[in-house]
Nucleic acid binder design. Structure first.
Length: 353
DNA sequence: ATCATTTGACCTTG
DNA sequence: CAAGGTCAAATGAT
């Protein structure tokens, strides 16, 4: 952690800086009887920033401070309910293709892996996890010994076109059917990942993106998605309990996919109100289920933020979002060096090990 | 026609 | 050898 910071280190710094900035704002807000909403927004932003920071640390666990991170995640009362464990034993197996696949297999084995627990409130619709912002394609489902529900396997839609090897596994919990264990493996190297990373981390960047035709289109379609598709999918979900998917490009969510992305880049401002989690596809109950997209958190940094419908959900969100994003994205450092220098003394000796 | 999901077969790992 | 993971043909949706 000294020389040549990696993207995650930068992201970490960014998150911490953001947290500090938000805290400052909150401080100002508190001293000036401002709207409660504003405060809540700031608080959420702060929490999200720290969540992300922790996620980053967690993700780098083996390389940096595993114990420390582990402990942090284990703190009782911590909003982070992520199942910090790097999944026990699903080692990177499989992959048999004789030639190229071999390489791929190798890649996968060395790719980072992390697990998250996402909770969905099937009664009210979607609370908890929704899209993680990426497009996934289901490539398999398997009954797991001892598990009531089958495990679904997803890979990035852009695997072939952009050589993105991110994959995820979704397993519905036996104990709590509303909980899904999602194991991610590999970082997104596709453009989608880059896009999400940027839009989510920097409000400025996001604004910029909105001027960009392609991205703008995506955002619009995604917003629609949240309000419409969700409902449709939910109905299906209820009628077919054993199978439903989240976020991914599953059949039920296909529309989105065609746009190139599944969701995300949401301008929380206008969307939040009716913003519920989109996901659930008619297909498999345990499948795609995603976490709050990187965008949610990204908004955190901005003035407006995501408002979680219920405290309960909030916790889950925090956990998911944090864990989800960091690992997956190749975040570009969202802050201007100026900004950083002027506001945060991370250069100070001791800030980083 | 194109693309995503389903599902049985096959491969890898322990 | 069993279980988990992936492939790929069949099928479905748009």
């Amino acid at each position: 952690m000294e020389s040549g910071w990696s993207w995650d280190q930068k992201s970490l710094i960014g998150e911490l800086i953001q947290g500090m900035e938000l805290t400052k704002q909150l401080k100002a807000e508190l001293s000036s009887a401002s709207a409660e909403e504003s405060r809540g927004s700031l608080v959420h932003g702060i929490i999200s920033s720290y969540d992300k920071a922790l996620s980053i640390l967690k993700w780098n666990g083996p390389m940096s401070q595993p114990q420390m991170v582990e402990a942090a995640f284990a703190l009782p009362g911590s909003p982070i309910s992520v199942n910090g464990s790097l999944s026990s034993d699903d080692s990177g197996k499989g992959l048999k293709d004789p030639q190229d696949p071999r390489k791929e297999s190798m890649k996968r084995k060395t790719q980072p892996r992390w697990t998250e627990q996402v909770k969905v409130n099937s009664e009210t619709g979607f609370e908890g996890p929704h899209e993680d912002g990426y497009s996934w394609r289901k490539y398999g489902q398997k009954d797991i010994l001892g598990a009531t529900f089958p495990r679904s396997y997803y890979r990035c839609t852009f695997r072939n076109t952009q050589n993105c090897w991110a994959i995820k596994q979704v397993q519905r919990s036996d104990e709590d059917h509303s909980v899904f264990d999602i194991t991610y493996r590999g970082k997104h190297t596709c453009s989608q990942g880059n896009y999400l990373a940027q839009s989510c981390h920097s409000p400025k960047i996001q604004e910029k993106k909105e001027n960009d035709h392609d991205h703008h289109q995506l955002q619009l379609s995604q917003e629609n998605l949240f309000s419409n598709q969700t409902i449709e999918n939910i109905e299906k979900l209820e009628s077919k309990e054993s199978t439903f998917c989240f976020g991914s490009t599953s059949a039920g969510c296909k529309d989105i996919v065609n746009g190139g992305f599944s969701h995300l880049a949401i301008d929380t401002h206008s969307t939040l109100g009716s913003y519920t989690q989109p996901f659930i596809s008619p297909a498999t109950a345990d499948s795609n289920y995603f976490i709050p997209s990187p965008c949610h958190r990204s908004d955190v940094g901005g003035a407006h933020n995501v408002q979680h419908p219920e405290p309960d959900v909030h916790e889950i969100f925090s956990a998911n979002s944090s864990a989800t994003k960091s690992p997956i994205l190749d975040w570009d450092f969202p802050f201007d060096s100026e900004q950083i220098n002027s506001n945060f003394p991370f250069n100070a000796p001791g800030f980083f090990y």
